[in-house]
Structure formats: C-alpha cells, structure tokens
Amino acid sequence: MKAPPFEYARATSLAEACELLRRYGDEAKLIAGGQSLVPMMAMRLLRPAWLIDINEIAALKFVAVESEVVRTGACARQAVLERDATIGVRMPLLKQALAWVGHVQTRNRGTAGGSLAHADPSAELPLVAQVLGAGMLLRSAKGARKIAAEEFFTGPMSTAMAPDECLEEVHWPLWQERRTGSEFTELSARHGDFAMVSAAAQIALDSEGRCVRAALGLGGVGITPLAFPGLTARLVGTRLGENDFEQLAREAAAQCDPGSDLHASAAYRRHVAGVLAARALRAAHGRAESVQ
C-alpha cells in the first residue's frame, strides 16, 4: 500500500498554491490534513502527479468568531476547532459534530476545510455546513468567489470547485437568537467510523417558546449531505412538540435516497434517518428551551 510516485510542492502562501494549481490543473491535488486523501493514494485509487501541500500556509489556519459568522481558514485543524472555547459556546453544533469525527489522532491532523472539500456524503462536517448554510470562499489565480454549501456539494466526493480552485475560508453562520439549541447525532458501526446515518438540527425559540428558526440535516442518506429548509420553514411561528419532531423526521426521511452497502441497507438507512432526525430535533429543541 505505497502511493504511486508523485511530485511534491509545499506552498508557502495561498497565492503560490493557486499558481501551482493553475500550472498543474487536474494533474494536481491539494493536500490539507490528508486523512482521506493519503489512504486513497495508498490504495492507488487516486494518482495525482503533483501534491500541493497547503499545511504550511499560516494564513489558512485562523479561527475568527465574528458577530454573524465564524470564519475558519481552510487548514484549521479539526482538533483546534474542537478545543476552541468560543466555538463551543457560540456554535455548539460544530463542536458536537467534531466529537463524532474520526479519532483524536485524525482530528489533530484533519482539517475542516479538507473534510468539506473531500465531500464524503456521510461525513460530519459537510452536514454541519449544509445545515447551517455555510459559505465557502474559493480562491484561484483568477480571483475569489463565495458559494453556499448547497451549491458547493454536488455529489459523492464531488464539489463545485474547479480544478484550479482552492478552498480558502469557511463561513459558518451564527444564529443571533439567544435561545438557540443544537444537536448532532449519528449511527455508525463503531464509534469514529463513517456514519451510516447522521443528523444535525438547530432550533431557535423566542421568549415565548415559539420557533423562530429551525434547521435539520441528514448525512449518509443521499449523494450529498441533505438539508430540509422547506420542511423546517413550516415550524417557524409554532410551539414545537413531540408530534412535530416525529412528523418532520418522517417527511425528511421520506425525501432521502440512501444507498445500500455492507453495513446497512437502503431501507434501514431511511428508517434510521427518521429516528435520528427526530432525536436531533428533540434534543436541539430541549437545549433551546433550557436557555432562559
């Protein structure tokens, strides 16, 4: 399990990374944490001629909690985000999700940006990005553009990024409502494995306990992580109860199109999607309610 030969370039700036991408185009792959890329190369499923290392670009490692958004550099390590106290308070969904991502050793090296760019439909961070409607700032030698998560994820391991583009920043929107609660849960064969199904929910309540905002997402049950803005919009203005969670979860699960594999059939995945969706909504709602 040795990778095929390739050439290595260590980019010292984003501009240099973009220039290398421009030069080598789809002959090149960017490597961030490498926690998915390196195994795929070891199994010779991927054979880039060039590997452009962006791990040494200090400008890609920042975490900035601003008033309306958490901005993270594409190369911010998962463990750094997980340990960030402000993220834990202001964006608990991200912290909750990170606890499910791999293991200590992989989170120390793995990056949030890398996980998004890899776009595994059962991975945790793409689901959070999809649910929150994160924005991706993409950079190429030609300039920058920002696209929303729903356009970013285009299929299994595929994104809207052009071969010469590099993910520069992720903008995770902060909900301003004081009474916001969130939950991330998943079912995997073993802890730390890719999820058979994952669910993320975030709910904001007004002081009367009426829903002012809600988001729900499911991972592992479609070609991309799925969000259900159409369904959750219905909750706004209502007081949520057990029936709402069940009903919404059922409808969300019905909209999923999961595949079958060794560990779970499509029918099982769809069923579990409904179960986890309801659990996530229930727990997120409970957390929002507990904020006085």
């Binding site: 490597i31 490498g34 390196v38 050793q105 992989t106 120390n108 090296r109």
Partner: peptide, 15 residues
C-alpha cells in the same frame, strides 16, 4: 508531531 498524536502512515515524510 509537534507534540500532538497523529498517524504517521497518513503523513508523507516530506511534509
């Protein structure tokens, strides 16, 4: 690596 545990099979020596 710099004091943090990582998997050394997932890092190229050059990195």
């Amino acid at each position: 690596l710099d004091g943090e545990p990582i998997r050394s099979c997932l890092l190229y020596a050059v990195q």
